[in-house]
Write a protein that binds this DNA or RNA. Sequence first.
DNA 1: AAATAAAATTAGATGAATCTAAAAATAAAA
DNA 2: TTTTATTTTTAGATTCATCTAATTTTATTT
Lengths: 220, 220
Amino acid sequence: MKKLSFAEENYLKAVYHLSGAGESDVSTNAIAEEMQTKAASVSDMLRRLSEKELVIYKKYQGVKISESGKKSALQVIRKHRLWEVFLVEKLKFNWDQVHEIAEQLEHIKSPLLIERLDDFLGHPKFDPHGDPIPDENGEFKEKPQIPLAEVDLNGTGIVVAVKDTNPLFLQHLDKIGIYLGAKTKIIDKVEFDGSMEILVDSKNKLFISKEIAQNVLVTN
Amino acid sequence: MKKLSFAEENYLKAVYHLSGAGESDVSTNAIAEEMQTKAASVSDMLRRLSEKELVIYKKYQGVKISESGKKSALQVIRKHRLWEVFLVEKLKFNWDQVHEIAEQLEHIKSPLLIERLDDFLGHPKFDPHGDPIPDENGEFKEKPQIPLAEVDLNGTGIVVAVKDTNPLFLQHLDKIGIYLGAKTKIIDKVEFDGSMEILVDSKNKLFISKEIAQNVLVTN
DNA sequence: AAATAAAATTAGATGAATCTAAAAATAAAA
DNA sequence: TTTTATTTTTAGATTCATCTAATTTTATTT
């Protein structure tokens, strides 16, 4: 495992995420979109990552992450999520403030640091957005989770994660009182616009839009 | 205050340190030596830093840090030392292990992060090597300190800092039982080689070489 | 199936940050 | 004060990561 540049780590993460844990193929444009860069830059980087065997890349056919690439990507993701826990649990950041800072911290190179940080935090299994934290070997298990949007009328669930980490989205959840661990019950579903009415913690009734319902994940 | 690159921040730090808090002039070669790079690279970077008015640079005449350069350098130093405290106090690193990691962490850009870290650590005034931590405005006060080598026979002092952060040096201090806060008394001085015999905490007698005596700083 | 549109790649430039080798300026020694 | 040595700077290359513009490949329509 050679030492990767920040840019390389970021591309690997993007490929990993966009391919759904590295299974399916990802298009050059999708990566460019995700990374706020140009397709030409992506092609170039994919060629380089492919030479290092971090991705499996066939020109014009899309890209997939390789086994060693996945290993690297998961370590970066592990670091990102551990730092997010640190920022929220120890430094009292809000969950909408931590992504950007963790984007920087995730590139710090020191296996010992991450080991100690993990100890310090008490080996958390999930980050502040409910995403699972891979262990040293890149292994993790996801909580079974479905979007609120797909829960049946009168169905209940506990909020376990959010699909999006956009600060505006997270701030909105704060405002209306949705948080990880909240108990929800669907008390009305509006067919034509996908919005719904839910009861949070058996006391707060609120209307949420389709966009919200699709990005809040619950478990039964 | 524009955002600086890692390289720029590192050069500024070097100029600041080598000039003794930015007073005197520093030579190109000294910087090259300090930064393990070539004089040509230094010249080039000094030209660029000079254009940004972070240093005062006259070709062939050496370089001095500017007011705005000093401000930036001190913020980087503040971050470095706060992270060192974090690593030792919270993550249980030894003082000889933290420099390298802090060299990376010091470049993380987020004023809020540093503010919160400072709060979390209880606003420490000194890092694990006894070096003062500048505040948000770059201000700090050094403890009065002299090398053990300059303490008179029978003189006493408390170890407040070390001049060098070389891991081998620090590990040696651990081994012989010298640490920040240790009470020392000079019980013998050997003229011809600069070595001495000292009493630590009124109970451990030990011989130390000139090199050690010059790099351990005490206050009366 | 040919024409058109979309997506992806290459070619060529640019800006950092670095290097080696050569030239220029300053300092030291004869 | 010349000569020599040292230090510093410039010139020219290189690598990484990016860009725009042009080209090529693949996908979609008519």
